[in-house]
Amino acid sequence: MEKDTGLLLYRNMLLIRMSEERLAQSRQAGLVHGACHTYVGEEAVATGVCAHLNQDDMVFSTHRGHGHALAKGVSPFEVMAELYGRETGCSHGRGGSMHLFKPEVGLMGTSGIVGPCILQAAGAGYTFKLLGKPNVAVAFFGDGASNNGAFHEGVNLAAIYKLPVLFVCENNLYATEVPSSYSSGNPDIYQRAIGYGIPGVKVDGNDAWEMFLAAGEAVRRARAGEGPTLIEAKTYRTRAHSEGMRDVGYRTQEEVESWKARDPIKMLRDRLLRDHTADEDDIDNVHNEVTARVTDDHQRAADSPWPKGSDALSHVYFEGA
């Protein structure tokens, strides 16, 4: 592993983690007005994939999308300001946790509906193919979405048109609180790729380096015109489905602890140190840098102005360039 790559992955995962923990605190403090679905525990997936993307590659995400937004280059400031309902938020206060948009950096939207991101990523892939662009589109979705019709229709369409798309299933074992072992005839989602004639890859979604490698190959295939890849990242969310929700009755504390022991940030840190890719000072520097960034971004977000009520009706239709 190159030092730059290793520290980039580490920094980006930490940025997501610390932003999410800040948001969880902010929700308790009353700064977040609606839902807050954190990505804690799953940071390696978005980080490993987005490390291969350019700004004009496109990401389509889910209700658990803060990590995807941050990994794609939306600043913590814009994500936090959005959850705080401020004009400076990445959706100017229209979206909150589940509707983060920043097309300027290829974050084409997180969504409160499970499934459509799969179809929309296929659509962006279609545009790239139609217009001869070298880009790729990525759909991030969960195990829950894999049992929705959008998964079948979207993956099949991308397969038959050989579109430059990555379908990244973050299998965190629960669709909200319903176990995927209960809701899937075959909980190994990557095996469904066979049914569509495309590669299906199983990855340890808590291992940033493994994610980085698997996504690299899928992106290479997509850019080379070889079509879509289905990646199943086995991972786990260690916080509640949504901040403030009861997190009991569907999983055991032992299970949560066993996944916390496989914390993706800790795992990468151990690897970086073990392989002498980076040393303690490097790691500390990243921590200091990210801590300062998140603290500052939170403060600026909390100090940001509210949107004007009179803007509530703008952009229902196109209003000119």
């Binding site: 459509p116 179809l119 929309q120 990523a121 659509g123 079948h152 979207g154 369409l157």
Partner: peptide
């Protein structure tokens, strides 16, 4: 030409419009 998958190809078209076609 498409499969008989109206939800699929309309959803795909949404993504296509979002991305510039």
């Amino acid at each position: 030409d498409t499969p008989i998958a109206e939800r699929g190809f309309i959803g795909l078209a949404v993504g296509a419009a979002m991305s510039g076609s």
